[in-house]
């Protein structure tokens, strides 16, 4: 059974934008799309810019795929897979849910 880790309150999320949370000593970027009521979570470390910044990028989609653009050099990372669309790099991707007003992350298996 999936173990869910409590992260933060739903009110801590920023609409159409990201926040960063510290979960098990990992930096996780969490994005919230209010129009479709969706939350995504991927690693916060940008492997190209080599800094913990992805939560601070702008969100959107490329041909339907939800993405964040790195705030440093603007490569896109899929919010569903963590895959970089421009080059062969990938960041971790996490399952995330809203439970009783709290944001929870699935313990990676």
């Amino acid at each position: 059974m999936t173990q869910w880790i409590d992260v933060c309150s739903f009110d801590d999320l920023e609409p159409n934008s990201g926040v960063c949370a510290l979960v098990n000593n990992q930096q996780v970027a969490i994005f919230y799309f209010p129009n479709e009521d969706k939350i995504f979570a991927i690693g916060n470390y940008d492997p190209i810019g080599k800094a913990n910044v992805l939560s601070r990028g702008m969100v959107g989609d490329i041909k339907g795929e939800p993405v964040v653009a790195s705030p440093l050099y603007k490569q896109h990372f899929s919010l569903r897979s963590g895959q970089c669309l421009e080059q062969d790099d990938q960041v971790p991707c996490y399952s995330v849910r809203l439970y009783d007003g709290r944001v929870q992350l699935a313990e990676p298996t």
Binding site: E14, P15, N16, S17, G49, A51, N52, V53, R56, G57, M58, V59, P71, L72
Partner: peptide, 22 residues
């Protein structure tokens, strides 16, 4: 403002200039 947050670029979103290490 909340409704404008999602359209602010790298620097505007924290009202400061992001450098290479974040």
């Amino acid at each position: 403002e909340k409704q404008h947050l999602g359209v602010q670029d790298t620097n505007d979103v924290y009202l400061a200039n992001m450098q290479k290490d974040g």
